[in-house]
Amino acid sequence: MESANVVNDYNNQDSNVHNTEWVPLSLTLVEYPKGDILGKILAVISLAPFGIGSGFIALILFRRDLHTITFFLGTLCSEFVNHCLKHLICEKRPLRREDVYVEYGMPSSHAQFVWFFATYIIYFVVIRLHHMNNNTIIENVSKFFILSSSLLLAIVVCISRVYLQYHTVWQVLCGALVGIIFATFWFALTYLVFTPLFPQVVSWRISEMLLLRDTTLIPNVLWFEYTNTRQEVRARSRKLVSMKSQ
């Protein structure tokens, strides 16, 4: 009798497993035509927003810079705007993707994300970094590389969404346009409203506990950190040598 109950329980569990409806996590699901090398490359590139998001989190955890945090909040707000627009417009994805994706396709969230990111980076380099007086060849080349790579990434991601038939051309163009407009708004808001408040924010007790900092007035943060770290290492090295000599 007991063995029969065990068998029945097992059969019931097996039946529940077979009856369970499994759905893909569309956020990370990327398909490409089998044997299509270009499609595979574009599928990998289309995951760029997730890499950028991971980079934001890493920078925030290790640098605690208010401008980086504000930039990241802008990307979250942009995604919220995209979500609202999708459910307001309610335009479906291309026919081939309707069975895989239950969410709407207008505007493209990938296109909006990458163009928000690229546009904000362009504004930051052109407007915020204009006061760097050194203008060395290395700095100019690095600025050009940042601008060109940001634009190239945004363009390729948009191409991948159309090539892999996740969006129509119109959905991608609308997503790019919304991303550019929102990035312009967010950069202006950050530059004119948030940035003047950063010195006050870093003086708060909670900011000190979280080690938040404002590097707005430092033209070249990388060079600043490098020189200060080198000076500190040399000072500590001399102090260690003097202690050993005693």
Results as ranks from 00 to 15, higher is better:
residue 2 E to N: 02
residue 2 E to F: 00
residue 4 A to F: 02
residue 11 N to D: 03
residue 13 Q to H: 03
residue 15 S to F: 02
residue 16 N to V: 00
residue 20 T to C: 07
residue 26 S to L: 01
residue 27 L to A: 09
residue 29 L to Q: 08
residue 29 L to M: 08
residue 31 E to C: 07
residue 32 Y to K: 13
residue 35 G to W: 01
residue 36 D to K: 05
residue 37 I to N: 12
residue 37 I to M: 11
residue 37 I to D: 13
residue 38 L to T: 15
residue 40 K to R: 15
residue 42 L to S: 13
residue 44 V to P: 05
residue 47 L to K: 06
residue 47 L to Q: 11
residue 48 A to W: 05
residue 49 P to M: 02
residue 51 G to M: 12
residue 52 I to C: 09
residue 53 G to T: 08
residue 55 G to D: 11
residue 57 I to L: 13
residue 60 I to T: 06
residue 60 I to S: 08
residue 63 R to Y: 15
residue 66 L to K: 03
residue 72 F to L: 09
residue 73 L to R: 02
residue 73 L to Y: 03
residue 74 G to K: 02
residue 74 G to I: 01
residue 77 C to K: 12
residue 78 S to V: 07
residue 81 V to E: 10
residue 81 V to Q: 09
residue 83 H to M: 07
residue 88 L to F: 04
residue 88 L to V: 05
residue 100 V to W: 01
residue 105 G to H: 06
residue 105 G to A: 14
residue 105 G to K: 05
residue 108 S to T: 07
residue 111 A to E: 07
residue 117 F to C: 11
residue 118 A to L: 06
residue 120 Y to V: 12
residue 121 I to C: 06
residue 124 F to A: 11
residue 127 I to K: 04
residue 128 R to Q: 02
residue 131 H to C: 00
residue 133 N to R: 00
residue 136 T to K: 08
residue 136 T to M: 07
residue 138 I to T: 14
residue 140 N to E: 08
residue 140 N to Q: 03
residue 140 N to Y: 03
residue 144 F to M: 05
residue 147 L to C: 06
residue 147 L to K: 02
residue 155 I to A: 01
residue 162 V to L: 06
residue 165 Q to G: 09
residue 171 Q to P: 09
residue 171 Q to L: 11
residue 177 L to I: 13
residue 178 V to N: 05
residue 180 I to H: 04
residue 182 F to N: 11
residue 183 A to H: 05
residue 183 A to R: 07
residue 186 W to N: 13
residue 187 F to L: 12
residue 189 L to I: 08
residue 197 L to W: 00
residue 197 L to R: 06
residue 198 F to T: 03
residue 198 F to D: 02
residue 203 S to M: 15
residue 204 W to I: 13
residue 208 E to H: 11
residue 210 L to S: 02
residue 212 L to K: 04
residue 213 R to A: 14
residue 214 D to G: 04
residue 215 T to I: 01
residue 218 I to N: 03
residue 219 P to L: 03
residue 222 L to C: 11
residue 224 F to A: 14
residue 225 E to F: 12
residue 225 E to M: 14
residue 225 E to W: 13
residue 227 T to V: 15
residue 227 T to W: 07
residue 228 N to S: 15
residue 229 T to E: 10
residue 229 T to R: 15
residue 229 T to F: 14
residue 231 Q to G: 13
residue 231 Q to F: 08
residue 232 E to D: 05
residue 235 A to N: 03
residue 235 A to V: 02
residue 236 R to N: 04
residue 236 R to H: 00
residue 238 R to S: 05
residue 240 L to A: 15
residue 241 V to M: 10
residue 243 M to V: 15
residue 246 Q to L: 10
